[in-house]
C-alpha cells in the first residue's frame, strides 16, 4: 500500500547513527555546524517560523520545526521533522522524515517518510538544510498526488478533495497542535471527570503518567 522508496537508506542510516556520529568525517560535521549557525540568524527562516535545533549536540541528528502553511488544512499546526545527516553529507542528501503525523499525499501516514525529489535524485551538494526545510514547507502547500508516498492519501486527494481536507485538518488538530503535550491531554481527560487541575496533576505524577492508575488515586 505504501511505496517505500527510502526504506533501505533510512534503515542503513539509523543503524549507523546509533554509534553517535563517530564515523562522520570532519567535512560533514563542519558543514552542518556552519549551516546550523547560519539558520539561527537567517531572517527568511525566522519570518516563516521555521526552526532547526540539535538532537544530542552531535550535529548528525537534528530536529526541524515547520508551521503548517496558511490556507492549507495544516494551518495552525506545528510539524516536527527528524533530520539524519549521512556520513558523506553534503554529497548525499540529508534523510528527513516527519515526526509529527501528517495526512499528505507525499508523506507516509504510517512512517512519516517524505517523497520529495530533492531528498533523492535531485539533491545537489549546494543545497542546505535551509533549502530542504523551505522545500518541505512548499510541498505541504502544494501536494504532488502523481508521485505519492502514501497511495491511500493520494487517492483521496484526487477523488474526494473535501474529505481529504477534512482528514488532513483533523490530523493537524489532533497531532500537530503546538504546546499541547500528551500529559496535557491526559490532564484534560481527568479534569473532565470533575476534579480540579492541581489534584489531577498530582495524581498523574503519582501514577507515572498512567491514566487509569491516576483515576484510582483520584477516587481513593
Amino acid at each position: 500500500m505504501f511505496r517505500r522508496k527510502q526504506a533501505p537508506t533510512s534503515a542503513a542510516v539509523s543503524s549507523s547513527s546509533s554509534s553517535g556520529g563517530v564515523n562522520h568525517p570532519a567535512q560533514a560535521i563542519a558543514r552542518v555546524k556552519k549551516e546550523y549557525v547560519e539558520c539561527q540568524s537567517d531572517e527568511g527562516m525566522k519570518s516563516c517560523n521555521i526552526k532547526l535545533s540539535l538532537v544530542e549536540d552531535s550535529f548528525v541528528k537534528l530536529r526541524g520545526e515547520i508551521p503548517g502553511p496558511l490556507g492549507t488544512p495544516f494551518e495552525g499546526g506545528v510539524f516536527q521533522l527528524l533530520i539524519d545527516i549521512p556520513q558523506n553529507y553534503p554529497f548525499n542528501p540529508p534523510i528527513v522524515k516527519f515526526e509529527t503525523k501528517v495526512w499528505h499525499p507525499n508523506v507516509s501516514s504510517q512512517t512519516g517518510v517524505i517523497c520529495l525529489d530533492i531528498l533523492k535524485d535531485q539533491w545537489a551538494a549546494a543545497m542546505t538544510l535551509r533549502t530542504v526545510m523551505l522545500s518541505i514547507q512548499a510541498l505541504m502547500s502544494t501536494p504532488e498526488p502523481d508521485d505519492p508516498q502514501d497511495a491511500v492519501v493520494a487517492n483521496q486527494y484526487r477523488s474526494n478533495r473535501e474529505e481529504y481536507n477534512r482528514t488532513a485538518k483533523y490530523w493537524t488538530d489532533v497531532y500537530a497542535r503546538p504546546g499541547v503535550s500528551e500529559d496535557d491531554v491526559k490532564i484534560k481527560q481527568l479534569m473532565d471527570m470533575g476534579f480540579d487541575e492541581a489534584k489531577c496533576k498530582t495524581a498523574l505524577a503519582k501514577a507515572k503518567g498512567n491514566v487509569e492508575q491516576a483515576i484510582e488515586h483520584l477516587f481513593a
Binding site: N88, F91, N92, P93, D121, W123, A124, A125, A126, M127
Partner: peptide, 20 residues
C-alpha cells in the same frame, strides 16, 4: 577537491550543484 568529490558521487549526474 569539493567539485571532484561531487562529480564522482552517484547523485551528481555530472551536473553543477548550483545551476544543474
Amino acid at each position: 577537491h569539493c567539485i571532484l568529490k561531487w562529480v564522482h558521487s552517484p547523485n551528481a549526474n555530472q551536473l553543477c550543484p548550483m545551476c544543474r
